[in-house]
Design a protein around this nucleic acid. Structure first.
Lengths: 215, 215
DNA sequence: ATAAAAATTAAACAAACGTTTGTCAAGCAT
DNA sequence: ATGCTTGACAAACGTTTGTTTAATTTTTAT
């Protein structure tokens, strides 16, 4: 559970904070606990991040910047709209899988009112939404006239993926699942089908699969 | 902003707590602030709820019980699978619209580790998931063999709806929207189409609409 | 009218909070 | 050797936290 010591204090603080914030939320975690888990004196938190909220700022900036990278080169790729969606979903899943705690903190703290980071959030969210505008055009949607639809569909996409990780501790008690490469491959496939063709698409795929297996 | 006084103290405490928890999160709100907003002495919180976490327990129980009602009579209705989904989405939207703060607290606190309510959460989530089993059968899904799909699709449904309300404060700066009856009608329609037929369904509907308007 | 019960209050509690302080040791140029 | 900077530390700062106590008012029942 303890962090690898050799790393620099600043990085150890970030890692510890991300893990703790993801588990219990920003407000529920004290600087002493962060310092303890990072094997660092509490004073170093003020030294490197000015304040506790400074840690959250650094974490959210990291989250948004890396999340933005998902869409960065999408426009330049010469692929179909469907493959475009599939690629985005694959990248989101890979991102959230690789940095689960970071993504959970970003997602969980996003709607909470923390005055010191309100501006940061608004700026970053606007950036990401504007990136989605181009994608909409490929699905007969006018970014201006149908903007409200983008406000529904876009957030739905990210929430669909993250929800899977958010509920993992609870879900693990209900279903017996091993979260290995094979599972994530199926997750990407299922979410892509669901987002592209809905539950009807899922049902059709299921029929095709069972028909293949039976015949 | 102040709560109507005539109500009973217990209810005033709940209302104030739900509003504050929704805005800033359970851990970030103190009992003194709850007491102040509820116009109640702090000691009344211990008196009526034993402790601060007792308030959260009461809130989550209320949330889950009312959320369960959404699916309660679904089995008895003689409607198509699609209409079934549409009805569920309509009810979820209506529920979250009518009790936005309650839903936000339930959704936001669900993945956070608060030992005192871990058991409550596990129990209620299991209840709701089991209710979804029946619905899956109507879409060629085997609740046993395809259980993991239910673990993906089910949570996606609720998260799609709630995400819309979670991001409202941030979204309102980006799009100029009035959240009136007409908007929610479109929200139900869009989410239903998205969940049933994906973005392809949305695109098809858009083409049909514009064709109707042009012709 | 009166006693018991319930509801409400102000005040105080120890514990935990985020932050600041002053100090010390090591590294480095002068 | 000297003075200066930087990284790290323990200790203490004043608040705020959730909770409890004991006293007081209000309600209920007899």
């Amino acid at each position: 559970m303890t962090i690898n010591k050799p790393k620099e204090p600043r990085e150890r603080i970030l890692e510890a904070a991300v893990a703790l914030f993801a588990q219990r939320g920003y407000a529920a975690v004290g600087v002493r606990e962060i310092g303890k888990q990072a094997e660092v004196n509490i004073a170093m938190i003020s030294y490197y991040f000015e304040s506790k909220v400074g840690i959250l700022k650094a974490i959210l900036e990291d989250f948004f910047d890396r999340y933005s990278l998902i869409f960065a080169d999408i426009k330049d790729l010469d692929i179909s709209s469907d493959d475009c969606i599939r690629l985005i979903i694959r990248r989101i899943v890979e991102f959230v899988r690789g940095e689960t705690n970071l993504a959970l903190v970003g997602y969980n703290e996003l709607p909470l009112d923390v005055p010191e980071i309100a501006q940061l959030k608004a700026k970053k969210v606007t950036e990401i939404i504007s990136q989605l505008g181009w994608l909409m055009g490929r699905f007969n949607l006018d970014p201006v006239k149908d903007g409200w639809k983008m406000g529904i569909i876009g957030p739905s996409l990210i929430s669909m993926v993250v929800m899977n990780f958010r509920l993992r501790p609870v879900m693990q008690r209900v279903f017996q699942l091993t979260f290995d490469d094979a599972y994530y491959e199926k997750l990407v496939e299922t979410l892509s089908t669901l987002f592209l063709d809905g539950v009807h698409g899922i049902a059709a795929q299921n029929e095709a699969d069972s028909g293949e297996a039976d015949g």
